[in-house]
Design a protein around this nucleic acid. Sequence first.
DNA 1: AGGGAGAATGTTACCGTGACCACACGGCCG
DNA 2: CGGCCGTGTGGTCACGGTAACATTCTCCCT
Lengths: 341, 341
Amino acid sequence: MTTRPPARPTRPPLVSVKITDVAALAGVAPMTVSRVLNTPDRVSAPTAARVRAAIDELGYMPNLIAGGLSSRRSRMIAAVVPTIASPMFSAPMQTFTDTMAENGYHVMLALSGYDQASEDAQIRAVLARRPDGLLLTGAVRSPPIRELLRASNLPVVEIWDTAEDPTDVLIGFDHAEVGAAVADFFVRQGHTHFASLSARDPRAALRREGFAKRVAHHGLTLLAEKVLDAPSSIEDGRSGLRQIVGLLGQRTALFGSSDLVAFGALTEARLHGIMVPDQLAICGFGDFEISRACHPPISTVHVDGAEIGEMAAREMLARINGAVTPARIAVPFQILPRATT
Amino acid sequence: MTTRPPARPTRPPLVSVKITDVAALAGVAPMTVSRVLNTPDRVSAPTAARVRAAIDELGYMPNLIAGGLSSRRSRMIAAVVPTIASPMFSAPMQTFTDTMAENGYHVMLALSGYDQASEDAQIRAVLARRPDGLLLTGAVRSPPIRELLRASNLPVVEIWDTAEDPTDVLIGFDHAEVGAAVADFFVRQGHTHFASLSARDPRAALRREGFAKRVAHHGLTLLAEKVLDAPSSIEDGRSGLRQIVGLLGQRTALFGSSDLVAFGALTEARLHGIMVPDQLAICGFGDFEISRACHPPISTVHVDGAEIGEMAAREMLARINGAVTPARIAVPFQILPRATT
DNA sequence: AGGGAGAATGTTACCGTGACCACACGGCCG
DNA sequence: CGGCCGTGTGGTCACGGTAACATTCTCCCT
């Protein structure tokens, strides 16, 4: 799938000014120019001023490719996420990228979809760029890739998941616990009949299973479990509800794998004349804006994607700078009861 | 704002296997290994097979940093977008990144917010990485940056906009025309009183102005124009409607700068007991999923963000490979009448 | 049979920077 | 007053590849 572009003649340099030109104009050695840019406190003030003047005059722009080769630090992080079309991943990517940029790092984006092989391929491909760190979605499941990453001693931050044995650092929560907590929440409200509408992705599956197990544990009835495509959309929620509507009883509690699914289910339920929450209670996941801002507002599980992205960036920076940080960081989740339960 | 990370000791190489190791094992020159990877048709089949065996045995992973320095081709594109939190930008970024990846290019992501100075800074920062091309949102407005980009002879694809004089290639449409078309659409439906709810971003402003001018041109009445924060959300649409609700007449046509704003306005209007579309007609912009999948479905302006991202990728690849492509590519937009007009 | 073209591979010389070590200089100490 | 240390700066070379040119060999044509 990753095709090499055809060979082409060499392109002239983007900007022809290089560090030696600056050095010549300022009357110093190239190394001193490099120090002015990278370790300014090791250069005397007058020299630094001369160098900066030369940089401005020539419009010098350092070549980070060359610098990266020489220093073996690319000042770049690679992020492999399934998609940025869902708020679940775009929110943490947004804050992660911002926070890394504030600290002089750029983020290379690789989209893996929901396919395991594609994720492995993307990880291999980005490693060829020698990133200073890797941001991954979910724990790495492929053993050879895990080995590769561990052996490389590269900072790896995995988000949105828990695992017994993370590759390096993992920031997330137990999705099965989320499903169980939602089941308990419904049970406390007196529900006895349940259903779920869930995306075909590993984390959504864990939530669905956690929900189902807890329902069974209470000895109550799971009327329907419908699995939808990933990433699942409002439309998936609507069509999902249409498909299970015949299976629902007088009073059912529905767990949607994301707020988009929940919103779709809510929309469709009302069109069918089903009273929410009296006949159908609905709880989503993710606390996306839509669940808060629609009417009636949808009960959901709050998890702070933006916060996770920022934490991931801090962990990444700490690891890059040699700090030893805990291997697993639990992020709290919280059920937000609103009008649909 | 872009702080350099503190200096650190050199990191050991990610993978210690280099091209010379492969060459030694295969009994060929390093250059031949390079050719096997980059121009396989210039290597005899038996030699290529030996080299590939050596690559597999050693687990060799090429270093694109080194290759990029030597060849002056980074096989990387930098994308500067305001945010990926809005479907407006995440949709084209998704398809752009996918399409570039299929062709062996990675995408470096830089988020500029809606601040001009930040965009300039981000462009300068990413240029230090010597990308093979630049994807920008909207035409570059800063003259020194334009000059820099033009002089660098770098493929630059600007999307989501039109301009008399694009930096290189521009893919988009005239936002003022969109506003005018929406006004005409409302007028054809017999509307005489209008309002707009619009984000504080340059392109939304153009749509709003185009709308207002066309309303004035028809000699009709613009009751309210409310400017919201960017990127504007459902909540902005709701609070915006609350703020203008007192100004609205018996029958008003409202133009929202995005479907999120329109959805918020719709939600709030119904809570106020305003009949949609009889008392308040609403048209959004963007054809996001929410406008299609909510109830009642919201009339909107369809523009295909995913298509734009893919076109941008094709243009980018064509330019990188030396093709001369047209400077301006007009993307059609289309008003989709649904239940709110 | 000689020579020229073209294919396959090797050799050399960088690409632009930063790590490392050498070195000059001034001040402070015993 | 000599040696020692710290600061500021310069010189050299390696980082890991690839472009460009050189070389070898084969095959085919005249």
